[in-house]
Structures are given as structure tokens and as C-alpha cells.
């Protein structure tokens, strides 16, 4: 008798587990506010498994298998088309995404995804130069990172796209150049710069900037903003020659078996209050106009995160590379590092 009751209760439990859904979200680290996910779980009565990654390659390597276990991911914009071509993405149902209206106008139909059939813009950023105000004259262009007086106190990002991009811009070429001559010239610039460099560092350079060990660094605007808030001695500039722009986008993976719930999550992220909270927590630049309106003056007018239109116009969005150009860039990156 007792045994039968126990077994029946057990199946009841199993039924419970099935009913409480679980969404699997794969995002960059430090890209949501502390309350973002718990609030979603509470409101919709679901559980969320939240994983983080540090690079698009890491995310792509997992997702490529076709059954990674994730429902939602956040690729950078230049990866959206490739992922679509590889059949990894689920087409979005705009009926389930009414909050799309809150998006800022430029992002409603971007180059990389006209009509937003596959992705929802999330947070965008630019890469530029963060520097110590003690440096005179203050850097205004990529060329300033080749100055002898900054020798040993300079860093660049440890990313081939960013480094080659800066070099290409310095030479007056396009960030997304596929021309062999242009790319080789850019690589030569990078090799020239190498002996002046302290190191190739990503976000970890923040501490050294604040401490004053590093005087100028190529860095993403969001990370730079975090550094500036730790030390008013620092400042950020979008280089004169032009700079790279990127947008991290939310996508739903084709393998997902919870597409309706995934849409709910994307719609939730588009809510102005939610997006504004994320910006306040992470110092990112939101694509959400409604959220922008909710932000305080200082944050909204922050030139590092939201440069004025004339500055923004110098920016160039990264593009995915055709295979031959990718190979050349890889090889040049190896040459630069081996020099």
C-alpha cells in the first residue's frame, strides 16, 4: 500500500518537472543586470539556465553541433548571416515581439539583417582609444598609438579584427578590406608598432589603466567607460580616421524546443525598464530608444557610450569575411604575433 502511494506520487513529481519549463540562455559575461533573469523567472513562472562565454568563437563552437542545449544566444552582428547560412537560427515571429517598436530607428532594419527576420539588436559598442589625461598632446587618432613617447605604455586589443581594423583605418582603408595589398600594408603597420607595445590585452587592461601603468590603450567603449568611472584621470576618444562598430544581437537557435518561451524572453529584454536596468548595471550602449529615455542625463549624454551623430558617422560596422580574405587575415595575424 505504502509503496503504491510512493510510486504514484513520484510520477506526479515528474509531471511537475515537465510543466515548469526551463529556458537556456547563452550570453556574454557581464551583459545583464543582477535582477534581469530572476525577475523574468518570477514573472513567467519558469526557470532559466544562464551560461556565459567570452568570445563569439566559443559560442559558435558549441552551437555548431546542432544540439548544444541552448535556446537563446547573443552573437555579434557579423555572425548573424553566417549562422543563418549554417541553418542554426530560427526565424523570428514578430507577432510575439511587440516590444520591437522600442528599438531605435537606425536598428530597425540594419544591413546585416534587413527586416530583423533572424535577430534582435541588443547592445552595441565601438572600439576606440582610452587614455590618461596626463598624456600631452592627448591622442585623437589611431596614429597616436604609434607615438614614440608612449613606448612601453601602450596596449592593443588581442583580437585580429580590432588590430588589423585600426591599422587599416590608420592607412585610410576600409575596416572590412579584403584587398591583399591593403591588408599586407596594415600588417606591416602592426609589426612596426609591436616594439612600442606593452602587451596585447583585452578587458584586463582596465586595472593597469586605472593604476596608471598603461597610458593609452585600444579598448571597447563599454570597458573604457567602466575604467573612467573608476578613475576620472582617464578619457575616451573615437579616433579621427574611423573606428569599428559592433552590435550584439539576440537570436533564437533552430534547435530550441521552447521557441514561444524564447520569444517571450526576447520581448522581455526589449522592455524599456529592463533594458535601462541592464545599461545602468553594465555601462553598455542600448539599441532601445525607450530605455534611453529612462536613463539619467549624465548617462544618456555620455559621449563615450553615445557619441554624437557626426562622430558616429566615422564608424564602420564590421562585416563577415569571405573565406580567402579570412585565411589571409589569419596568416597575417600569425605573422604579426611571430614578429
Amino acid at each position: 500500500m505504502k509503496r503504491r502511494v510512493f510510486l504514484v506520487a513520484l510520477t506526479g513529481l515528474a509531471g511537475c518537472a515537465r510543466q515548469r519549463s526551463r529556458l537556456n540562455v547563452f550570453n556574454w559575461s557581464n551583459y545583464v543586470a543582477r535582477e534581469t533573469v530572476p525577475d523574468f523567472e518570477k514573472e513567467f513562472g519558469v526557470g532559466v539556465r544562464y551560461g556565459v562565454y567570452e568570445s563569439n568563437e566559443e559560442m559558435l563552437a558549441r552551437v555548431l553541433t546542432g544540439n548544444s542545449g541552448w535556446d537563446v544566444a547573443f552573437p555579434t552582428h557579423s555572425y548573424v548571416a553566417p549562422m543563418r547560412d549554417l541553418g542554426l537560427l530560427a526565424e523570428l515571429d514578430h507577432d510575439r515581439l511587440p516590444n520591437l517598436d522600442h528599438l531605435a530607428a537606425p536598428f530597425r532594419s540594419p544591413d546585416w539583417d534587413p527586416g530583423l527576420r533572424w535577430s534582435v539588436p541588443y547592445m552595441w559598442g565601438a572600439s576606440g582609444i582610452v587614455y590618461n589625461r596626463a598624456v600631452a598632446p592627448p591622442p585623437v587618432a589611431w596614429a597616436d598609438l604609434w607615438r614614440e613617447d608612449l613606448a612601453g605604455r601602450l596596449t592593443m586589443l588581442d583580437d585580429p579584427f580590432e588590430v588589423l581594423g585600426a591599422c587599416l583605418k590608420k592607412l585610410g582603408f576600409s575596416l572590412n578590406s579584403t584587398d591583399e595589398r591593403e591588408l599586407r600594408l596594415a600588417a606591416r603597420e602592426a609589426i612596426r608598432q609591436k616594439r612600442l607595445l606593452r602587451a596585447y590585452l583585452n578587458a584586463e587592461v582596465r586595472d593597469q589603466l586605472v593604476a596608471g601603468d598603461v597610458l593609452a590603450a585600444q579598448l571597447w567603449a563599454t570597458t573604457a567607460q567602466q575604467a573612467i568611472e573608476s578613475s576620472p584621470q582617464l578619457a575616451f576618444v573615437h579616433p579621427l580616421e574611423g573606428f569599428g562598430l559592433y552590435m550584439d544581437c539576440a537570436v533564437i537557435l533552430k534547435e530550441s524546443r521552447r521557441k514561444p518561451l524564447a520569444h517571450e524572453f526576447l520581448n522581455y529584454l526589449l522592455r524599456p525598464q529592463v533594458a535601462a536596468a541592464i545599461v545602468r548595471a553594465t555601462r553598455t550602449a542600448t539599441a532601445n530608444d525607450g530605455a534611453l529615455a529612462l536613463l539619467d542625463e549624465p548617462l544618456r549624454q555620455n559621449r563615450t557610450l553615445y557619441p554624437p551623430p557626426e562622430v558616429l558617422a566615422r564608424g564602420e560596422w564590421f562585416r563577415p569575411m569571405p573565406a580567402a580574405a579570412q585565411r589571409l587575415r589569419d596568416r597575417l595575424w600569425t605573422e604579426i604575433k611571430a614578429a
Binding site: 607595445l197 596585447y200 589569419d330 595575424w333 604575433k337 611571430a338
Partner: peptide, 19 residues
């Protein structure tokens, strides 16, 4: 400081940035 590339880094790069 990521300034030199050794065999280990080369291999790692192929599976990450270089794909």
C-alpha cells in the same frame, strides 16, 4: 602579453579566432 606566438598559441588560435 600575448606578444609571442608559440606552437600552443598557434593551435589555440586555429580553434578560436582563426576557426
Amino acid at each position: 602579453g600575448s606578444k609571442t606566438i608559440l606552437v600552443g598559441t598557434l593551435i589555440q588560435n586555429q580553434f578560436t579566432t582563426a576557426r
